[in-house]
Simulated scan of single mutants.
Amino acid sequence: MASIPTPPAQPDDAPDSYVGLTAVEAERIARERGWTTVRALPPGAIITLEFLQGRLNFEVENDTVIRCWLG
């Protein structure tokens, strides 16, 4: 029987710390902290709601992160 895969570790990080940063700066810091997937979305973007371990989402308006969440 095959073993159950273990999801990759997720960085211990505070999403609120990215709010107010530029999109470029926020992505750079997120990758330095170990996030494997970082996505920037415009306000009101239609997205799927699946949770992806290791992903950090930014809502960006006028090149500034206004919201950040995991998954």
Results as ranks from 00 to 15, higher is better:
Met1Glu: 15
Met1Gln: 14
Ala2Arg: 10
Ala2Gln: 11
Ser3Lys: 15
Pro5Tyr: 00
Pro5Gly: 05
Pro5Asn: 12
Pro5Arg: 06
Thr6Ala: 14
Thr6Trp: 13
Thr6Gly: 05
Thr6Asn: 13
Ala9Phe: 13
Gln10Ser: 13
Pro11Met: 13
Pro11Gln: 02
Pro11Val: 02
Asp12Met: 03
Asp12Glu: 13
Asp12Lys: 08
Asp12Thr: 10
Asp13Gln: 08
Ala14Lys: 15
Ala14Cys: 14
Ala14Gly: 10
Pro15Tyr: 03
Pro15Asp: 02
Pro15Leu: 09
Pro15Asn: 03
Asp16Asn: 13
Asp16Gln: 15
Tyr18Pro: 01
Tyr18Gly: 04
Val19Phe: 12
Val19His: 10
Gly20Leu: 06
Thr22Ala: 15
Thr22Ser: 12
Thr22Met: 07
Thr22Phe: 15
Ala23Pro: 00
Val24Pro: 01
Val24Ile: 14
Glu25Trp: 09
Glu25Tyr: 04
Ala26Val: 14
Glu27Trp: 05
Glu27Ile: 00
Glu27Ser: 11
Arg28His: 12
Arg28Cys: 14
Ile29Gly: 00
Ile29Pro: 05
Ile29Asp: 09
Ala30Thr: 04
Ala30Tyr: 05
Ala30Leu: 07
Arg31Lys: 08
Arg31Ile: 13
Arg33Asp: 02
Arg33Val: 04
Gly34Val: 01
Trp35Tyr: 11
Trp35Ala: 00
Trp35Lys: 05
Thr36Asn: 09
Val38Cys: 10
Val38Asp: 07
Val38Thr: 09
Val38Gly: 07
Val38Ala: 13
Arg39Asn: 11
Arg39Ala: 03
Ala40Pro: 05
Leu41Lys: 07
Pro43Lys: 00
Pro43Asn: 01
Pro43Ile: 02
Gly44Asn: 06
Gly44Asp: 00
Ala45His: 00
Ile47Asn: 02
Ile47Gln: 06
Thr48Ala: 11
Thr48Tyr: 07
Phe51Ser: 01
Phe51Glu: 08
Phe51Gln: 11
Gly54Thr: 01
Gly54Phe: 11
Leu56Lys: 04
Asn57Met: 07
Asn57Val: 02
Phe58Ala: 09
Glu59Val: 14
Glu59His: 08
Val60Ala: 01
Val60Ser: 04
Glu61Ile: 12
Glu61Ala: 15
Asn62Leu: 06
Asn62Ile: 12
Asn62Tyr: 04
Asp63Ser: 00
Asp63Trp: 04
Asp63Thr: 10
Thr64Gln: 10
Val65Ile: 11
Val65Arg: 03
Ile66Glu: 06
Ile66Asp: 12
Arg67Ile: 04
Arg67Asn: 12
Arg67Tyr: 10
Cys68Glu: 08
Cys68Arg: 15
Trp69Cys: 06
Trp69Asp: 01
Trp69Phe: 11
Trp69Met: 06
Gly71Cys: 05
